[in-house]
């Protein structure tokens, strides 16, 4: 029996009140790959994320995670989502440790009392992103990069097989960006699937195994070396091209 695809979308169409946000999307993401998601604002990147998370039900088509329906995948904590940082109330009275522990809730009983295994996973995850020393700090006192790392640690503690990162490098210093990319590559080598949206085309092209170009539908999808071409970039972004990697190289 063949191993199921990590993320599989079949002919997915999503509409918001009769307005089509995505149509005819077919996508099969393999385990152990980093996939870049490129598109302009309003091209359907967030919609695609929300569809994979199961927050939006497609009008037509089917989504499967590791061969399972989304509701089952959610219960098993298979998918972790790193939102853009602005979406959380940073004045909330919780510490870094508390936030990472929230990644373990799905494994706990109804009282959500941490067991030793949960504490160990939280510690390992925080050490992995080099945030263990800051574990007791209120989240509001973190820098942009530290906030990102804390939420990445939560995804690690959740032991998700699939990581969805929405613009993870926004407001993050170069050192943190490199550290995050390094970590993503390690996770990829451990068999995790990573889907990352960004408009930083330069860095996307350097660490992603595959790239998806999106504008209401999939314009191109394949190995970075094959599809990361000027033609596809022009089709995706129209005339307003962001800085391109090869302009400096050639």
């Amino acid at each position: 029996m063949p191993h199921p695809m990590s993320v599989e979308l079949e002919n997915v169409t999503v509409t918001y009140q009769e307005k089509v946000a995505l149509h005819g999307v077919n996508l099969s993401l393999k385990s152990g790959s980093i996939v870049g998601l490129l598109g302009m604002n309003g091209s359907g990147k967030s919609t695609l994320f929300k569809t994979i998370m199961g927050f939006i039900r497609p009008r037509i088509g089917r989504v499967q995670i590791e061969g399972l329906p989304i509701s089952v995948a959610q219960k098993r904590g298979l998918v972790a989502y790193l939102p853009q940082t602005e979406q959380v109330d940073w004045q909330f009275p919780v510490s870094v440790y508390d936030v990472v522990m929230m990644g373990r809730y799905g494994y706990m009983n109804v009282l959500r009392l941490p067991r030793p295994v949960d504490r160990r996973m939280v510690q390992e995850s925080l050490q992995r992103v080099e945030m263990w020393a800051l574990r007791n700090r209120p989240i509001g006192e973190l820098s942009g990069g530290q906030k990102k790392r804390a939420f990445l640690a939560r995804a690690l503690a959740q032991q998700a097989k699939i990581l969805l990162l929405d613009e993870p490098f926004n407001g993050v210093d170069v050192k943190t960006e490199r550290a995050i990319i390094q970590l993503l590559m390690e996770l990829r080598n451990l068999g995790q699937t990573i889907l990352v949206s960004s408009h930083d085309l330069v860095s996307i092209s350097t660490f992603c195994d595959q790239v998806i170009f999106i504008n209401q539908t999939i314009l191109a999808y394949g190995a970075t070396a094959e599809v990361f071409t000027p033609e596809n970039l022009t089709r995706t972004f129209g005339g307003i091209l962001p800085p391109l990697p090869w302009r400096g190289d050639v």
Binding site: K75, R76, Y81, M102
Partner: peptide, 16 residues
């Protein structure tokens, strides 16, 4: 659960 609901409902949803 209520704390998570107030703090980060998106994460709550994503873990079912």
């Amino acid at each position: 659960d209520l704390l998570l609901f107030c703090f980060d409902p998106t994460h709550a949803r994503s873990i079912g």
